[in-house]
Amino acid sequence: QRHDLAYQQAADTQQVLTPEAKIISHNNFYEFGTSKSDPMDNSQTFKVNPWQLSISGAVDKPYVLDYDQLFRQFPLEERIYRLRCVEAWSMVIPWLGFPLAQLIKKAAPTSRAKFVAFETLYDPKQMPGQASRRIGGGIDYPYREGLRIDEAMHPLTFLAVGLYGKTLPPQNGAPIRLVVPWKYGFKSIKSIVGIKLVERQPPTTWNMLAAHEYGFYANVNPEVDHPRWSQASERRLTTGGLLARNRIATLPFNGYGEEVAKLYKNMDLRKYF
């Protein structure tokens, strides 16, 4: 079902990659169930073609990308990013895709575009978690996420259409998903159908569900613990079983502080967590 993609390779980052088999079998994608293996088990018949991704809102040139255009509209490149889950585990993943900024620029955003709102496909027939609150973890679907416009335009902010050289499997958010490497994984919304430029901070799924646990910004921050667990360290999932000594310190902005800390210069990151 997955096919090969042509892309520009990333420079060697010296990071140990998480094996592909782990990346595609350990997913939080509650639309397909809440356990880590549910998404792989329940998404294999998920239809990604045809697909429509619309770019709308405060823009001069709204447009829609169909399935083929997702891979052709912008040149694809590889980005090797660390993904830090809010649950204190992390992976290193070779994504394929293009910067979100390119997609937004093409729509010519107006001066009213202060935030970007993202939405996952809503299709309870295909997504059992949307059809049943029990399977879907009590979330109000469709899944929604958002970024401030400067975060969205940052060169690190990426739309992924593939990983490990091939298109995305459904459980990783096929056909197109967001990747914001300095934020907790839940910001990186999967299987996107709508990107809307808006004037006000949009409501976001986990924040609506438990505002004191999941902030809008959700920047990786070892100093602000989740109320129920520490964020000071994480377990890096690569290879090795139970005995792998994989607990490492969590870095501010997941180690991307040099590139992104300036976006939050005058903000109290304890308040805006």
Binding site: K22, I23, K36, L237
Partner: peptide, 18 residues
Amino acid sequence: IYSLAFADQLGADPVKAV
């Protein structure tokens, strides 16, 4: 479970599984 976990045969995160 423990022998699978030691051998890394228990999904991506054998620690959580255990």
